[in-house]
Design a protein around this nucleic acid. Structure first.
Length: 816
DNA sequence: CAGCTAATCCCTT
DNA sequence: AAGGGATTAGCTG
């Protein structure tokens, strides 16, 4: 019996499947008799008919088997292992195997040489030597698909069969593929985990009572394209938000498990919908998004959210919900602002008399769903709109608005104080587009008769097109239920702000909308028409201030400064002087309005006129002020004189003696003049009062005046002469001590009335066109900060104020 | 047990 | 028939 001949009858793997009825052994060495041929065929373990004698043959047999045919040999080898005859000892094949293993351990030294020299004596199991693998790998790196020639060359060099080389490459490729697959798999798994976690948190959020109110799933079916866009934008904002969160290391806590138990069942359809919605960016965003997102409540939900969700969850999760609500609110507010800015009739109608625009409240209610809930009892609405050309480009203006310090500097007489309390998003792609922040501000009209408006609001910036931006503010007092006692709010800002569009000439067209609800009872009768007109806190004043301030900045930055200087001042001197004047005017405003910039104590003295407000504070450790007890007195009166005439009178240094005791009874001289605008009324100047007698040195007065469509200011303060010399030479103005006094003038009368929704006081006195004049003094009554205020001091300042008012009235020939 | 590698099976081009 | 993907045997850690 020739094994060779037998093997020739077999074909590779799929050869004869005749199985003799012989005893077999399984792997464990147990004999299996009469194994069915079908089973064997199926198992592909046995190809040729075998007999027990084959395995019992002489030790040399195995070698003989391997010679003639690779395939046959391989099958035989497998055969030998799987159907090992139960000889009770280690099979020959095993011995051979272990030997070949050790051969490979030796490396390519002797055995491989042998393999090359001798006819291929194949080992059933072996691995290519490290050298061979190294070579194969090297080629694989360059070319994972070598052609036949390359393979042949390699096989010669490595003493491998071409088939082996081919197999190796095939296997290597599949290996690469599986590795890749495995890697992808793990990525997908990670992603899946994230999504699951996200889903969990959303589910938890959906258990919130708020969501059961919102009807989110109900409106899901028919969302408009616009809402879709908002959603996409929303999710993008959330991505941004999360990126910021992640950077800040503000990781959210896992939802507390008790939450799941304590509240009712989740809303499955909603949570499903929302889960999809919040991943609008799918694959693109998922890798970057590592934190559970805040729940997507859907557009339109904000109107149904007057209260914060119960504080059951962790603070982090609450915060996330809060931020999500802020985003919804900001988007709704932006939408409203843009419509308010761009729609004319019937939303805005022109009043017959004044020609100003008035908000059509019925149309407003029809058009918008309320963002921040119902108007509080006793509050009146003020809605104004104004458009103006401003010498500033949209990017600069947007940057200014989004920076609380620059914002306050842009509107110095309007904003007493401002701060950014929280940045929710700083914008996308390095721009302010999408920037969202929480801000706090105190807004003022310069009169003690109008309380400061303290507002907490969201400010949201969005680019609508190239060169078109919008910045919207909206109060958040109704949403944010702070842990501290709810602060009394005297004003809520409905969506307000501006739409800016660049113009080709370097100007931009700014449309301002100011929409607020405030407690009118706090406002003195005499100022109510002003507020309703929009000249108080309304769009007209914002635009007028913006125009004036931008013009001022443009002039100061241009090299061609219109100079009217009597004494040449250096550029540094001008800068110092302007800075000093700015500080003076800021302090003046703070004294008039009792903003919290200074800690004023209000006095209620009996011997003080009803409409004069007197306050004191201690000045300590401020080099910009004399130390001691500072008394501030302010009042506002109505005068039947046009604002322009009143302003011109008060700022004229030659008429100073008519009202200013500092003038020593004579005219003053202008020593220096720095223009701040086209109008000569916008300037900083240095005045000198004549001396009473020869041995008395004259006195210097720093004065700043400004005027725009909304009103005007004359602010002044006596200054130390040596200190002023330092300033005019460019020295630091911070150490110049001064206390400001001055006037604020706003128009009043038919011309200023007409728009807004606030019911103007019908029972007030009928006025002709006139002005509202605020007079305010800050006086040092004692240079010891600890000194007690005396009745005499209060009387003195009260007298000073009423005398000044009387003198002005007399000079302008108004009867008192 | 998972993972790796050489080899085989079997289908497509 | 060549090539390649799927699968497997036979090992290793």
């Amino acid at each position: 019996m020739s094994f060779g001949g037998f093997l020739e009858n077999t074909t590779g793997g799929g050869g004869a499947r005749i199985v003799a009825d012989i005893p077999y052994s399984n792997g464990n060495g147990n004999l299996i008799h009469n194994m069915p041929a079908a089973a064997l065929a199926q198992s592909r373990l046995v190809t040729p008919p075998l007999t027990k004698s084959m395995f019992n043959s002489s030790p040399g047999l195995s070698l003989g088997l391997q010679q003639p045919n690779m395939d046959g040999q391989a099958d035989m080898g497998r055969m030998a292992e799987n159907f090992e005859v139960n000889t009770g000892r280690r099979s020959r094949d095993e011995e051979h195997e272990s030997r070949s293993g050790s051969d490979n351990m030796d490396g390519a030294s002797g055995d491989d040489q042998d393999a090359a020299d001798n006819p291929p004596r194949k080992k059933r199991y072996h691995r290519h030597t490290p050298q061979q693998i190294q070579e194969l790998e090297a080629l694989f790196k360059e070319c994972p698909h070598p052609d036949e020639k390359q393979r042949l060359e390699l096989s010669r060099r490595l003493c491998l069969e071409t088939r082996q080389v081919k197999f190796w490459f095939q296997n290597r490729r599949t290996q690469m593929k599986t590795q890749l697959e495995r890697h992808e798999n793990s990525l997908l798994r990670q992603e899946n985990d994230k999504l699951r976690a996200e889903n969990m948190s959303i589910r938890d959020a959906m258990r919130n009572p708020i969501c059961s109110n919102c009807g989110g799933s109900a409106i899901m079916g028919e969302i408009s394209i616009e809402e879709q866009h908002l959603r996409i934008e929303n999710s993008r904002l959330k991505d941004e938000l999360d990126r910021v969160c992640a950077l800040a290391g503000k990781f959210l806590g896992r939802p507390i498990s008790s939450l799941a138990n304590s509240i009712g069942p989740p809303l499955p359809s909603s949570s499903l919908e929302l889960g999809v919605g919040s991943n609008g960016y799918g694959v693109l965003s998922t890798v970057a998004t590592t934190l559970p997102l805040g729940p997507d409540f859907g557009i339109g939900i904000s109107s149904a959210l007057p209260v914060m969700p119960p504080a059951r969850t962790t603070a982090g999760f609450d915060r996330s919900i809060e931020r999500s609500m802020f985003l919804e609110l900001a988007l709704a507010a932006m939408d409203e602002l843009v419509k308010m800015a761009q729609t004319d009739e019937p939303l805005w109608v022109r009043s017959l008399e004044g020609g100003r625009e008035m908000l059509n409240h019925e149309e407003y209610v029809r058009t918008f769903t309320p963002c921040i809930g119902l108007r509080p009892n006793g509050f009146v609405t003020e809605a104004t709109r104004e458009t103006g050309m401003v010498i500033v480009n949209s990017l600069v203006l947007v940057e200014t608005l989004m920076d609380s310090n620059r914002w306050a500097e842009m509107f110095p007489y309007l904003i007493a104080r401002s701060s950014t309390t929280d940045v929710i998003s700083s914008g996308m792609g390095g721009t302010r587009n999408g920037s969202l922040q929480l801000m706090h501000a105190e807004l003022q009209v310069l009169s003690p008769l109008v309380p400061v408006r303290e507002v907490n609001f969201l400010r949201f910036c969005k680019q609508h097109a190239e060169g078109v931006w919008a910045v919207v503010d909206v109060s958040i007092d109704s949403i944010r239920e702070t842990s501290v006692a709810p602060t009394f709010v005297n004003c809520r800002r409905l969506p307000s702000g501006c739409v800016v569009q660049d113009m080709p000439n370097g100007y931009s067209k700014v449309t301002w909308v100011e929409h607020a609800e405030y407690d009118e009872s706090e406002v003195h009768q005499v100022y109510r028409p002003l507020l309703s007109s929009g000249m108080g806190f309304g769009a007209q004043r914002w635009i007028a201030n913006l125009q004036r301030q931008c013009e001022c900045l443009a002039i100061l930055m241009s090299s061609a400064v219109p100079t009217r200087d009597h004494a040449a001042i250096t550029a540094g001197g001008r800068r110092s002087m302007l800075k000093l004047a700015q500080r003076m005017t800021d302090n003046f405003c703070a004294g008039v309005c009792a903003s919290t910039v200074h800690k004023w104590n209000k006095l209620h003295a009996e011997n003080v006129d009803e409409d004069v407000r007197v306050m004191t504070r201690k000045s300590v450790d401020d080099p910009g002020e004399p130390p001691g007890v500072v008394l501030s007195a302010a009042t506002s009166v109505w005068l039947p004189v046009s604002p322009q005439r009143l302003f011109n009178f008060l700022r004229d240094e030659r008429l100073r003696s008519e009202w200013d005791i500092l003038s020593n009874g004579g005219p003053m001289q202008e020593m220096a003049h720095i223009a701040k605008g086209q109008d000569h009324g916008n300037c900083v100047s240095l005045l000198r009062a004549g001396a009473l007698n020869a041995n008395q040195s004259s006195m210097l007065i720093l004065q700043e005046t400004c005027i725009d469509a909304a009103g005007s200011l004359v602010v002044y303060a006596p200054v130390d002469i040596p200190a002023m010399h330092v300033v005019m030479n460019g020295g630091d103005s911070a150490y110049v001590a001064l206390l400001p006094s001055g006037f604020a003038i706003v128009p009043d009368g038919p011309g200023s009335r007409g728009s807004g929704e606030a019911t103007s006081n019908g029972d007030g006195p009928l006025r002709v066109s006139g002005s509202l004049l605020t007079v305010a003094f800050q006086i040092l009554v004692n240079s010891l900060p600890t000194a007690k205020l005396t009745v005499e001091s209060v009387e003195t300042v009260n007298n000073l104020i009423s005398c000044t008012v009387q003198k002005i009235k007399a000079a302008l020939q108004c009867e008192s």
